[in-house]
Design a protein around this nucleic acid. Structure first.
Length: 509
RNA sequence: GGGCCGUUAGCUCAGCUGGUAGAGCAGUGGACUCUUAAUCCAUUGGUCCUAGGUUCGAAUCCUAGACGGCCCA
């Protein structure tokens, strides 16, 4: 692109391996086009292995199959006048057989001398089977398409250092088939969700990532700045309030799969940016969404994994049988058999129980908040099999519709597998006056020092005042779902580029 | 935020009680036309994460810091 590209700055700490490869590249530049882009392939490795799996060597000899393949040189076994190598493309690996007698003496010498592991090749030849039966390509042409300047990790152990795998994901993808598989599953899950919802009449939409009032969740936001407007904006913590505005507008079934940003610590379960599915449906309630969630996850497992049993970190979860359903109260009592209803239905009693467990109960907490702390502390992590928990206290559900029979709780559920929350859904609060009141309460909490409490969103209240049909909505954490489906212990394993602290090389900090 | 563990050649790792750094792979030179962790012979390669300290002497012991992993909040 630029003239400077011809004169690469020599890195002082660059080692000999790289220097040798740079010399080879310099010779290529000397000889002509060093980065040709006229090669076209007509096959992929894995396709060939599959298509000719049943075809034996004699048949391949009788009816030669010519192929053109592109890929990265991953292994080399060079003998005097013939070599076996493997190249890897997006589908997989295939072996090449390169002989002096096929290529010619000069070309074979160049093949042995100039190529390094990691180089990108374009090859042409015919399929055959080796004596051990491996489908391979007998090459009559091998072209170097891109010189690799850096050596690949070791061929047997590969790249195992977690930090390197996260920071240099490209290397991880080159070296580790399981990493490639994890991200294929991730894509398959997202694709499945789109197909599933599209087929049921949901409209996919995009709503603002930069918001003036961050809403729709209880979390601290990131702040950014708009120069022309000279104002701070928040990266969204949830799309919820915008999606419900769309329901007011008449898009009665909508969904969005996109990034949310929350300004909290990093851990094996938290990345500052993460992906959520949120979907909303008018003329439905939270029970309809539980049914939908159950059916969708079951179908997803069948489609993506080919089975309904999910193995995660040594445990096994059956998505084929009906999911358990339990209320928050029931869950607390179930996992604390020494407690009775009297212990958790009265604020003072519940507070004593919580403090007895070492929980720091704050003065302003009502019974609902104390109950949910008890639930999270004693029950949540024990919800192993797929389980819906319902009847969340109104106090901790500022956007959910109150239950008609018991206004202390809302028509809300959360979904758990393996002790982790995967989804959160509820019948939406469409009473504009109730919503305004709850926003006011959140603002009070914010003023009292709760950094995660919500802002008052006057336009959202105005939208509700126009009338939102009875609606149910749900959010599903895509990253956690992918972790479950790929048996990944850390969220970083399912993010292509997880957030990492800067490397801070030497004096650069 | 707290605790534990880790950081040594491009990669995967040894390095004992402090004595001045090693293997395999990769690389380089040579042999080899059915190999597949190819084989055989020879061989190059180091900011031992960083900065201090202790010591005649530090990869090793001490302190602080950086980055990462795991657990906890």
């Amino acid at each position: 692109m630029t003239e400077q590209a011809q004169q690469p700055a020599v890195d002082a700490d660059e080692n000999k391996l790289i220097a040798q490869r740079r010399e080879k590249l310099a010779a290529l530049r000397e000889a002509g086009v060093a980065f040709p882009n006229d090669f076209r392939r007509d096959a992929l490795a894995a396709d060939l292995l599959e298509r000719y799996a049943e075809v034996d060597g004699e048949a391949l000899e009788a009816q030669p199959v010519r192929v053109r393949l592109g890929g990265r040189l991953m292994s080399r076994r060079v003998m005097g006048k013939a070599s076996f190598v493997h190249i890897q493309d997006m589908s997989g690996r295939i072996q090449l057989f390169v002989q002096r007698d096929q290529l010619g003496t000069d070309a074979y010498q160049a093949f042995k001398r100039d190529l390094d592991l990691g180089d990108i090749l374009g090859v042409e030849g015919v399929l055959f089977r080796t004596r051990t039966g491996e489908l391979s390509v007998k090459c009559d042409s091998v072209r170097l398409l891109t010189k690799s300047l850096r050596p690949l990790p070791e061929k047997f152990h590969g790249l195992t250092d977690m930090e390197s795998r996260y920071r240099q994901r490209y290397l991880d993808l080159i070296m580790n088939a399981t990493t490639r598989e994890t991200f294929r599953v991730r894509t398959a899950i997202v694709q499945f969700i789109r197909e599933y919802l599209n087929a049921r009449g949901y409209l996919e939409v995009e709503t603002p990532m930069m918001q003036v009032i961050p809403g729709g969740a209880v979390a601290r936001p990131f702040i950014t700045h708009h120069n022309a407007l000279d104002m701070d904006l928040f990266l969204r913590i949830a799309p919820e309030l915008f999606l419900k505005r769309l329901v007011v507008g008449g898009f009665e079934k909508v969904y969005e799969i996109n990034r949310n940003f929350r300004n909290e610590g990093l851990s094996t379960r938290h990345n500052p940016e993460f992906t959520m599915l949120e979907f909303y449906q008018a003329y439905a309630d939270y029970r309809d969404l539980m049914d939908l969630t159950e059916a969708m996850l079951r179908a997803m497992a069948e489609r993506v994994l080919g089975r309904t049993t999910i193995d995660y970190q040594g445990a096994s979860y059956d998505f084929g049988k009906p999911f358990a359903r339990m209320t928050v109260r029931e869950a607390i009592l179930h996992f604390n058999p020494e407690l009775g209803a009297a212990d958790i239905d009265d604020l003072d009693a519940a507070r004593r129980v919580a403090e007895g467990m070492g929980l720091a109960v704050k003065p302003g907490w009502g019974l609902g908040k104390v109950q949910i702390e008890l639930f999270e502390h004693t029950a949540e992590h024990q919800l192993m099999d797929p389980t819906f928990i319902t009847e969340y206290p109104t106090e901790v559900s500022p956007l959910a519709r109150r239950n008609d029979a018991n206004p202390f709780v809302t028509d809300r559920f959360e979904f758990f597998v393996g002790g982790r929350e995967l989804a959160n859904g509820f019948s939406e609060l469409n009473d504009a006056e109730d919503q305004a009141e709850r926003f006011r309460k959140q603002v009070e909490e914010k003023e009292a020092g709760d950094l995660e409490a919500m802002y008052y969103d006057a336009d959202y209240v105005r939208a509700l005042e126009h009338g939102m049909p009875p609606t149910a909505g749900e959010g599903i954490g895509i990253d956690r779902l992918v972790m479950l489906f790929t048996d990944a212990p850390s969220i970083r394993d399912v993010l292509l580029f997880p957030h990492m602290r800067p490397e801070g090389r030497g004096s650069a900090a």
